[in-house]
């Protein structure tokens, strides 16, 4: 408690000091002559934000782009495109990209689809709020928390006693043995980098799929909440008119409601994709990127901060940035078309 109080006191002092500085600056620029007075006032208001953005986003982004063309281990050893070349060609490196692409595709599709489904089926259902709240809850547990929750789900307590599993998934899996064909023994789910037994450089490993489930579990609540709010905004008259014209529930949903909320669905999908592309915490709190589950963001961290290859790390960050841009552009274009159409 003492620590909390001292923190709060610190923050209060900080805010008062900040307010005082702003006040003094404002008073100072108010002593200037026009047009500098008004300019100065604008500066006091937007200055702090612009300063933060300039030193914290714009300059670093530019510096990172520059760094991506340097070796980084020696001072300023020009590397040309070799960092990028390594990302796409060297050894297991391309698997990181492969994983990210699958992550973006699968997590986005599933969490958006689940969001649409729940938003539709739960709409005006009894207990709607409770059900949606439960699905929304993982949003709050943090990715690290989610990683541990699911690591526990996937746990293999090992040993010979296959029925004494502490991980829910393995327990179920072993229980299913008598029912399913073949022999179901406890698995190390997060170590299996084959896709249904196939070792491929295109298909994601099973372990990556299991990690994706974590992200879907987190993101579905976001999708549900936003899409559900949009669906509640569909005018009743519209649906009623369709019903009177003879549309079935299903037809009314696919022909009227879904097109109506399409911009929202696209926005949700875009936001999810961007979040997924940057996935880092889940990897950190589960496999740490081992067993071919690495992603761009995690690899970028590892290369930059533990393996001293800042040039390579910077190149990965640039790749991430380049991947985000077209998604944003496509989304904007879609939104614009829909607004006009």
């Amino acid at each position: 408690m003492g620590q909390l109080l001292s923190t709060l006191a610190l923050v209060a002092i900080g805010i008062i000091a900040f307010g005082a500085i702003i006040g003094i600056l404002y008073w100072l620029v108010s002593q200037l002559r026009e047009p500098w007075r008004e300019r100065g006032r604008v500066g006091v208001f937007v200055g702090p934000a612009l300063l933060l953005l300039a030193i914290g986003l714009i300059y670093p982004a530019v510096a990172t782009v520059r760094m991506a063309f340097y070796k980084g281990d020696g001072p300023d050893v020009w590397a040309g495109l070799s960092n990028f070349k390594r990302i796409f060609t060297e050894g297991d490196n391309p698997l990181v990209l492969r994983n990210n692409i699958w992550w973006a595709l699968i997590v986005t599709v599933f969490s958006t689809a689940i969001g649409v489904m729940i938003a539709r089926f739960a709409d005006r259902m009894r207990g709607e709020r409770v059900a949606k709240a439960l699905i929304f809850l993982p949003t709050a547990v943090s990715m690290v928390g989610a990683g541990i929750i699911w690591k526990f789900m996937y746990a293999n307590s090992g040993g010979g006693n296959q029925s004494k599993q502490i991980g829910l998934l393995n327990w179920l899996w072993v229980k299913l043995d008598p029912i399913l064909p073949g022999k179901q023994t406890a698995q190390f789910w997060l170590q299996n980098d084959k896709f249904f037994g196939i070792k491929s450089s295109f298909l994601p490993g099973m372990n990556t799929l299991f990690l994706m489930i974590i992200m879907i579990w987190i993101q579905a609540g976001f999708a549900t909440t936003v899409i559900s709010a949009a669906m509640k905004g569909v005018p009743d008259d519209l649906v009623e008119a369709a019903k009177i014209d003879g549309a079935s529930d299903r037809q009314a949903f696919f022909r009227i409601v879904l097109p109506y909320v399409k911009p929202t669905v696209i926005t949700v999908a875009t936001t999810t994709t961007i979040a997924v592309l940057k996935v880092f915490d889940i990897i950190q709190s589960t496999t740490g990127g081992q067993f071919h589950t690495d992603t761009v963001a995690n690899d970028m961290y590892v290369k930059s901060f533990t393996q001293s290859q800042p040039g390579y790390g910077a190149a990965l960050a640039v790749v991430l940035f380049l991947a985000v841009i077209p998604i944003v552009v496509i989304n904007n274009r879609n939104q614009k078309e829909l607004r006009q159409g």
């Binding site: 953005l53 030193i55 914290g56 986003l57 714009i58 300059y59 670093p60 982004a61 510096a63 990172t64 782009v65 760094m67 961007i274 592309l277 940057k278 963001a297 970028m300 961290y301 930059s304 800042p310 790390g313 910077a314 990965l316 960050a317 640039v318 991430l320 940035f321 985000v324 841009i325 944003v328």
Partner: peptide, 13 residues
């Protein structure tokens, strides 16, 4: 600037 991933800014910052 929302589109700039945090990752791009870490090291220089």
């Amino acid at each position: 600037l929302m589109v700039v991933p945090i990752q791009m800014c870490l090291i220089p910052l």
